[in-house]
């Protein structure tokens, strides 16, 4: 009994992960990583881990992304790989 929502989320997560490490633009990578975090957060919410989901939403998708962006704007967006 593969629940379809689970499977969908999981495949999205994997796609996001691959995209995040393969996009050449770091800012885009960071944004994709934010999406990844948010999907993770949904996944955990479906697993009943509300606290973790909440934390991931605030920390992973929120602050962490902002910190990445802050750092990238002060350095460079380009990436060779």
């Amino acid at each position: 009994m593969i629940s379809s929502i689970d499977l969908m989320l999981l495949s999205l997560v994997v796609i996001c992960a691959i995209a995040a490490i393969n996009v050449k633009d770091l800012l885009a990578a960071t944004m994709i990583f934010g999406v990844y975090s948010f999907l993770m957060c949904l996944l955990w919410a479906t697993m009943g881990a509300v606290d973790v989901a909440f934390t991931e939403a605030t920390i992973g998708a929120g602050i962490s992304t902002i910190l990445f962006i802050g750092a990238i704007l002060h350095t460079t967006r380009r990436s060779k790989d």
Binding site: V50, D51, A53, F54, T55, T58, I59, G62, I63, I66
Partner: peptide
Amino acid sequence: SPGGGFQGGVILGASFV
């Protein structure tokens, strides 16, 4: 309810951000 020091702290911090 869900939440606690970390989540609340991050939200408070986010407001300043």
